[in-house]
Simulated assay, not measured.
Amino acid sequence: MNINVTPELTFRTARSGGAGGQHVNKVETMVEGAFNIDASTLLTPEQKQLLHEKLANRINSEGILQVRSQTARTQLGNKQEVIFKINDLISKALIPRKKRIATKIPKAVVEKRIQFKKRLSEKKQLRRGNFE
């Protein structure tokens, strides 16, 4: 059964699996939400491109982000869970990554490394020198 909310977001229901007895076998509580990224009027073309890159493993070949929920006992609860998951995925994907600022190695660290190398070199020199 398909339920259209907007041209961007559609829901499909099916019977949930797992424990629950006869109730599970007769009620369609599992909800699968499909968000059409390409048809979205809320997103800019740059945001759509970013979503396609960051959520590539969750988006099918038609550009639809699919999310499913069957944790709640009611269809309404699962529908709310699907909407929450879609919002969460999109908002996290649209957060820009911070650029890494290269830091300079402190002089004390460089000096410590050089001193360690000198001590190791002296130790090896002492081992080598007594065989003549």
Rank of each mutant, 00 (worst) to 15 (best):
I83F: 04
P96S: 13
R97P: 11
K98N: 07
A102W: 04
A108N: 09
F116Y: 09
A93W: 01
K85C: 03
S121V: 01
I95F: 02
K107P: 02
L89M: 04
V82D: 08
R128L: 13
V110E: 05
Q125F: 14
V110N: 09
P106Y: 11
S91I: 00
S91E: 13
F116G: 06
I101H: 02
K104S: 15
F116I: 09
I101A: 09
E81L: 10
K117C: 07
S121H: 09
K92T: 02
V82L: 02
K123L: 13
K79I: 04
I101G: 02
S91Y: 04
I114Q: 11
Q115L: 14
K85V: 06
I101Q: 11
R113P: 01
K79D: 02
K85G: 03
K85R: 10
K98L: 11
D88A: 11
N87H: 05
K123Y: 04
K104H: 13
K117D: 08
V109N: 07
I86C: 05
A102N: 14
S121W: 06
L89S: 03
I90G: 03
L94R: 01
A93Q: 02
L94M: 01
K98V: 08
I101M: 06
K118C: 05
A93M: 01
R128N: 12
V109H: 08
A102H: 07
R128S: 06
K112C: 05
A108W: 07
L94N: 00
V109K: 11
L126Y: 07
A93G: 02
K123Q: 15
I83K: 05
V109D: 06
Q125L: 13
K92D: 12
L120W: 03
A102C: 04
A93F: 00
K99N: 14
Q115I: 07
R100A: 13
K124Q: 15
K99L: 13
L120V: 02
A102M: 13
F84V: 01
N87M: 08
E122D: 14
K112Y: 03
K98E: 15
L89E: 01
R119M: 08
R113H: 03
L120A: 12
I105S: 07
I105F: 05
K118R: 14
K112T: 12
Q80W: 08
L126F: 06
R113G: 09
S91P: 00
E81W: 04
V110R: 15
K104F: 10
K98A: 14
S121E: 11
I83N: 03
K104T: 11
E122P: 04
K112P: 00
K104M: 12
V110S: 10
V109F: 06
R113K: 14
K118M: 10
L89V: 05
Q80A: 10
F116M: 07
N87W: 02
R128P: 01
K99S: 10
Q115P: 01
K124F: 08
V110A: 10
K112Q: 12
S121Q: 09
K99A: 12
I105H: 04
I90M: 02
E111P: 00
T103V: 12
I86Y: 03
Q115R: 15
V82P: 01
N87P: 04
